[in-house]
Design a protein around this nucleic acid. Structure first.
Lengths: 152, 152
DNA sequence: GGGCATTGTTGACGTGGACAACATTTCAGT
DNA sequence: ACTGAAATGTTGTCCACGTCAACAATGCCC
């Protein structure tokens, strides 16, 4: 059994000042988003669903038949990017694009049967992720932050 | 003078439901971060400084002589990525890497004279950006969100 | 002194955002 | 009804960025 050396002591990251960054909300938003997304990805790693893919599936589930343009605007994902995402999700038999009756240019988006099963599992896993967030923030702060960001 | 047609009326983005996303903090964090970063980039567009570059300059300004490893860990930027960023900032005469006396492996990071002037202007512009954020949130909510994310 | 760790750098890969161009379809004004 | 502009979805391209592996130089502990 090869004995491992103890890793070098991490010295004083505490002494490093943030400077003006300490008064910039964008900096802290990025840091928290990094943590949240990493935890989310770990939580759903078994399903191979990225946060962006999960958001697409969730909105399609809540609004069956909506168009890609509407979905794109809702999630803030470029139409071009969304087309490629839906191509992939369709190949994996999660979403499907049906022809729209009223507008032949657009597609009506739906989940497949498999997609609905996957979404049910993803929802449960993401709920556990959310619980971790609540614990990390504390219930009160979690609620106030969620409300503030939602109203933005 | 070619007369412009009025753009098509955006119809009912209000009717689209978020579904389970409405109870996912990560979703709203991303949306706010999108807005914040876009506003920040617009605010500093005259200086050609990205949010990441600004954060590097700010931390170097507040901690002259620190090493790349320490900076990397503080900002959550990969050492590899940071090396390339500092190469670019050095080429633009904003930052410089001086040899470290104690540890010949590492570099002591500093702002150049030009870098300090640039940082002063960037700080002022980013402060106006921050004021827009305060107005958008409202002072009370801004303060509570900032405090909550800072403590995370 | 030997062996492993750390530092900084470079190369390679994949992802995602941004933008332009395109065919098809729809709409508004005449 | 016609016509020009706009909307929809798709593809191609470019670039920023996170990630990982490998490397040389240097530092540290035993």
């Amino acid at each position: 059994m090869p004995l491992q050396r103890a890793p070098m002591v991490r010295r004083g990251s505490a002494s490093i000042k943030l400077g003006v960054l300490d008064a910039r909300l964008g900096y802290f938003i990025r840091r928290v988003q990094l943590w949240v997304f990493q935890d989310f990805i770990r939580a759903l790693s078994g399903l191979d669903l990225s946060p962006a893919q999960f958001s697409v599936v969730a909105v399609v589930a809540a609004n069956p038949g909506l168009t890609q343009a509407a979905l794109s605007e809702t999630l803030g994902i470029e139409r071009a990017r969304l087309a490629r995402m839906l191509h992939d999700l369709g190949r994996r038999d999660i979403t499907q694009r049906l022809p729209s009756a009223r507008d032949k240019r657009s597609h009506a988006l739906h989940l497949t049967g498999e997609g609905q099963k996957l979404f049910a599992r993803a929802r449960a896993l993401s709920a556990k992720h959310e619980e971790r967030l609540v614990k990390r923030f504390g219930t009160n702060r979690y609620n106030s932050v969620l409300a503030a960001l939602r109203d933005f």
